[in-house]
Simulated scan of single mutants.
Amino acid sequence: MPGFDGGYMADELDTTSEITENHTNMSIDAIRTRAQAIPAGNPGECAHCGEFTPRLVNGACARCRDRLKLG
C-alpha cells in the first residue's frame, strides 16, 4: 500500500510542512518590517484638537490622524 510504509506520503508531508514553515517565516518577517515603520510618537498636546495624549505622531493624536486622514 503506497504511503503506508512511509514512502512518498512522508515526503509529501515533509514538503508541505517545509512550505508552511517558509510561508509562516515570510509572513512574520513582513509583519516585523511593517512594525518597524510605525513611528514611535511622543506624549503631548495634539495640534488639532488640543487634547493631551501619550502618543502624538507629527503633532497629531490617533483620533485626529484618523479623522483628518493624516496617515
Rank of each mutant, 00 (worst) to 15 (best):
T24F: 03
A60N: 06
R63L: 08
S27I: 04
N42A: 12
G50I: 11
N42Y: 00
D66F: 11
M26A: 09
P2C: 03
C61S: 06
A60R: 13
R55D: 03
H48P: 01
T53K: 13
P39A: 05
Q36C: 03
N25K: 15
I28E: 01
A47I: 15
G44N: 10
R34P: 01
D11V: 06
C61A: 05
F4E: 05
P2G: 03
P54G: 09
G7T: 09
R55M: 13
G59D: 04
D11S: 15
E51M: 10
P39H: 11
Q36P: 01
S27G: 14
I19N: 05
A40S: 06
A40K: 10
S17I: 00
A10N: 14
L56W: 07
A10P: 01
R34Q: 14
M1P: 00
A60V: 08
G6C: 11
H48N: 14
N25L: 09
L70R: 10
N42I: 07
D5L: 13
A40D: 08
C64V: 13
A37M: 14
D5K: 07
R63A: 14
R32P: 03
A40N: 03
C64M: 07
L56V: 10
P2Y: 02
L13K: 13
P43I: 06
F52M: 11
A47E: 14
C61N: 01
G71Y: 04
I38L: 15
N25M: 12
F52G: 04
L68Q: 07
A47F: 10
T20Q: 08
E45G: 06
C46L: 04
N58S: 13
S17F: 02
A10T: 15
N58D: 15
T24S: 00
S17N: 07
N22M: 06
P39S: 07
Q36S: 13
H48Q: 08
G71E: 08
P2S: 06
G7K: 10
Y8P: 02
I31E: 04
G3S: 05
I38Q: 08
V57A: 00
D66C: 06
I28G: 00
I19D: 08
F4P: 00
T53S: 13
N22D: 14
T24D: 00
R65I: 05
E21N: 08
A62S: 06
L68M: 09
P2W: 00
T53Y: 02
A37L: 13
A62E: 03
D29S: 11
E21R: 11
D5N: 07
E18H: 02
R34T: 09
R67K: 10
F4N: 01
L68H: 06
D5H: 10
